[in-house]
């Protein structure tokens, strides 16, 4: 399963409680859509660290890295690359 599929699946399952892929577009902002708030982001970081073996530093916890499926995929790619 690709990184994108894993991330999409995780967000759908844990924040939208849905299995409908159309409920989330890859570019949807989690903040703008109210999907993830300031406590929810902790859960996302746990997931990324556990699933992809990356460590998310304090200064990396910014929307540019974490606020959409596309942003997370790019961020993971950068960390793993």
């Amino acid at each position: 399963m690709s990184v994108k599929d894993k991330v999409r699946g995780y967000i759908l399952e844990n924040y939208l409680f849905s299995d409908d892929p159309s409920a989330l577009a890859d570019g949807d902002s989690f903040l703008d859509k109210g999907i993830i708030d300031s406590t929810g982001i902790l859960e996302v970081i746990y997931f990324l660290e556990d699933e992809f073996g990356v460590s998310v530093e304090d200064d990396e916890m910014v929307p540019e890295n974490l606020d959409s499926v596309d942003n997370i995929v790019a961020f993971i790619g950068k960390k793993q690359g």
Binding site: D37, I41, D58, M61
Partner: peptide, 16 residues
Amino acid sequence: YLDISKKQGAVYLKSF
């Protein structure tokens, strides 16, 4: 618990 990091804190605080 909101004090995750200065930059992150500001953005997520503002969103909520």
